[in-house]
Design a protein around this nucleic acid. Structure first.
Lengths: 201, 201
DNA sequence: ATTGAATAGTAAACTTGTTGACTATGTGCA
DNA sequence: TGCACATAGTCAACAAGTTTACTATTCAAT
């Protein structure tokens, strides 16, 4: 039996539990709403949908459309709901961090500090931009947290996580830039001291 | 030609650029020092070492030991150093977040809120523990940031990143727990209002 | 005396994610 | 008329990480 990608499969199940979607719809949902904490390409989604259908956790209805290509509308089955809830109540261990930038920072003593300063600034900007978008989304959709539906409320929690994540990265970049600049300056000072007051010998 | 796992290969190269290591040594380094930002199992490391050796980016010397099994001591070659630096100066895009816990939070409106509260508390504790360890490490090894060597300094930057990461997660857990508890309480209040003052009809 | 832990390394299968190419249809724009 | 773009989906290959299970040796503790 083919094996499911647990988190991906269950994200799809959860979205289908709220509303029937086509693969194409799901793909857009991932881009717009789920992407703060889980990414998937259309290809991954279609592949996972095929597996889920084979297990009868979801079922498809082919919708004939005139103005567009036909589509398959998927909805969750009773079995699917059961499996989803079973999975939801299991504990989840932290995922491991894998960050190219850190690997490069860790090796940056082998290259010109200016290169790393530029890269850190570029990354700071990326995270600041992402953060601004998330905050805008928060402002637009969740300005009154007490009035949210259950589903909206949990979406808000994940958005808050995304906001903390991006702001954490932006802040670290700022800290790293400052520390690195300070260090470069100290080295320059030491160098000019050395030139002005050469050690006797 | 076999393909390298870029970040993993270059982390290994970077460690070998500082000092010769056996696969086993590298594996311990990953557990102790690199794990804040990149994880690798011994198996991944041995596999990558074999690929790197085939390309002549690293070279191995077999060390005959009497009190222990023999080992292969790897060191970086001139080509390896070149390739490492070439890679270090390339920009790195943010890695995507993939977090099972978020997927479960996003679906938690389908289960009893108490289950999610417990899970969030468990996770908060995990991140708080990890944070305490990292802070202890910071205190032990980096209490005087101005006196660090270049290599130690960049290590310190990655440690600061790990600290921010873990504290960010712990704080988000706390926030989520508070918001969720507040919501549960509001629902209880609304429920008791409904019972005490039933709507006429 | 033997068991378990640490040291040192290898092999194979499997899971999961990425990439590029491919087939279609319909709409709007230039 | 043709081009780009959005919609809707499929196939195949590849990259990278995980898991399990091996083979060995040495040392310390029970």
């Amino acid at each position: 039996m083919q094996v499911l990608c647990m988190a991906l499969a269950h994200t799809i199940l959860m979205l289908l539990a709220e509303q029937a979607h086509s693969g194409y719809d799901l793909s857009k949902e991932f881009n717009e709403c789920v992407g703060h904490y889980w990414q998937a390409t259309p290809q991954q989604i279609y592949r996972e949908l095929a597996k889920l259908e084979k297990r009868d956790w979801i079922e498809a209805e082919t919708i004939t459309q005139e103005s567009r290509p036909n589509k398959k509308l998927y909805s969750i089955t009773a079995t699917g709901k059961l499996k989803l809830v079973e999975w939801l109540v299991q504990p989840a261990d932290p995922m491991s961090v894998r960050e190219d930038l850190m690997v490069k920072v860790r090796g940056s003593h082998l290259v010109n500090p200016e290169v790393m300063l530029q890269e850190l600034e570029r990354r700071r900007q990326i995270h600041a931009d992402k953060l601004a978008k998330l905050r805008e989304f928060e402002h637009e959709h969740f300005s009154e947290p007490d009035r949210l539906s259950d589903s909206e409320f949990v979406q808000y929690l994940t958005l808050r996580c995304g906001i903390r994540y991006e702001s954490g990265w932006a802040e670290w970049c700022t800290e790293a830039i400052e520390r690195l600049q300070q260090r470069v300056q100290q080295k320059r000072d030491a160098e000019s001291d050395r030139v002005l007051q050469p050690t006797p010998g």
